[in-house]
Simulated assay, not measured.
Amino acid sequence: MSFLVEFAMFPTDKGESVSPYVARIIKMIDESGVPYKLTPMGTVFETETMDEALEILKKAYQQLEPDCNRVYSVVKFDIRKGKSNRLKQKIESVEKKLGKEVSK
């Protein structure tokens, strides 16, 4: 099973630039071993279970909780049975349809 999760999470009480806070979250995801992709507007990661996905989100919040008084987050799930590695395969599928050579 594949749980693709796209989310953004950041403090709203730390001024205009929040990249140091986002970096905390990305470091945690990277160290977790979960496949992910950072984008300019958020992060996408993939797990095999809902519990794993929710645990990553919980740990993301825990990176901000100690020194952030207000945290904004938006989360989207794409859950599909019988599939895996969709973080890469979904992009490859579109690139093939565009006639692009798929990167390995």
Rank of each mutant, 00 (worst) to 15 (best):
M1C: 03
M1D: 02
M1F: 10
S2A: 10
F3R: 09
L4G: 11
L4D: 11
V5A: 12
V5F: 14
A8V: 07
A8E: 11
A8T: 10
M9L: 02
F10D: 04
P11N: 15
P11E: 04
P11V: 00
T12A: 12
T12V: 12
T12H: 08
T12E: 09
D13A: 06
K14H: 01
K14I: 00
K14N: 00
G15P: 05
G15R: 03
E16T: 02
S17T: 07
S17D: 12
V18G: 08
V18M: 04
S19G: 12
P20E: 04
Y21A: 01
V22L: 03
A23C: 11
I25Y: 03
I26S: 10
I26L: 14
I26Q: 13
K27F: 01
I29H: 08
D30K: 15
D30L: 04
E31M: 03
V34F: 06
V34L: 06
P35S: 12
Y36H: 11
K37G: 07
L38R: 05
L38E: 13
T39H: 01
T39P: 09
P40M: 06
M41S: 07
M41G: 03
T43V: 00
F45L: 01
E46G: 05
T47C: 00
T47I: 00
E48I: 02
M50Q: 12
D51C: 02
D51F: 04
A53V: 15
L54T: 09
E55T: 12
I56Q: 03
I56R: 07
L57G: 10
K58E: 15
A60S: 02
A60R: 06
Y61F: 01
Y61I: 10
Y61R: 13
Q62Y: 02
Q62D: 15
Q62F: 06
Q63Y: 13
Q63K: 13
L64S: 07
L64A: 14
D67T: 02
C68M: 08
C68L: 15
C68D: 04
Y72T: 07
V75N: 10
V75L: 01
K76T: 08
K76W: 06
D78V: 11
D78I: 13
D78S: 11
R80W: 01
R80K: 14
G82Y: 06
G82F: 09
K83P: 00
K83F: 15
K83A: 11
S84N: 09
N85G: 10
N85S: 14
N85Q: 07
N85Y: 15
N85E: 15
Q89C: 05
Q89F: 05
Q89W: 05
K90F: 03
K90D: 05
I91S: 08
S93R: 14
S93H: 14
S93N: 11
K97H: 08
L98V: 09
L98Y: 02
L98K: 05
K100W: 05
E101D: 11
S103G: 08
S103E: 15
S103T: 11
S103L: 14
K104L: 13
